[in-house]
Amino acid sequence: MIKVEGLYHSYSNDENYAVKNANFEIPKGEIFGFLGPSGAGKSTTQGILTGLLQLQKGNVNVAGYDVKNISQKMFNKIGMSFEQSNVYSKLTAKENLDFYRKLFDGQTREPADLLKLVGLDGKENVRAGEFSKGMKHRLTFARSMINNPELWFLDEPTTGLDPAIASEIKDIIRKENNNGVTVFLTTHNMFIADELCNRVAFIVDGEIKLIDSPKNLKLQYGEQLVDVEFRKNGTVVKETFSTIKEEEKQRLQKVILDYEIQSMHTKEATLEEIFIKVTGRGLV
């Protein structure tokens, strides 16, 4: 569905690259997670893939179209939800969708159904200008599915939403994917990525550091960890130890011998911990 080779992009048209030598391929039907801290180059990459930004260097093929000479027809197959919501604030939620659906050629979805899906039912006739940030974001998200896209670009779809709604959005993405939609998911929320993605790419400073499935990553990097609570000088202390690193194993042994253990649980490394370990960087 997507093939990217040797992609570079510089906003200042010099060696100062926002995206550096990106290579990846996304097969049909996959949810591909594009993960990285803010400023890593995620939105830039997505912008080039959707033709918003001029392709400067590299080969990019999206949904069978060469991005070098984009045809407007390509967008009948593509949906895009923006990081910054961008709807007409002077139009109502329904008017926004009613207008947008007319800009596509094929079958489009009913605005009322979409608004219900994202929990905006009852707000159809309210102008988007009166919406909260989260509601605008949901409207932007709903709009991106109106043309029944085969390939769906989602830039931070859950950022700024409260957890309950984020979880609903996650379910919608999974459901669409089950119907065969390929998803390019840009996020810095590792929990969502972990739950949804078939594969993830870690991107830092414009460079893709690795691409793999969350499961493989956990097998490969996810050492077994132990959470231990113990009583030390009258207070309860909580610490996490690796069961692989020699030094930590010895410290764990010492704790068990010297102190009174209150509880002890093993746990799997999270995607976030793996990200930090691989890239040496946090996610914010």
Binding site: G51, L52, I78, M80, L103, D105, N147
Partner: peptide, 8 residues
């Protein structure tokens, strides 16, 4: 931008 990613 939203307009630019439509078939119009």
């Amino acid at each position: 931008k939203a307009y630019a990613v439509t078939a119009s």
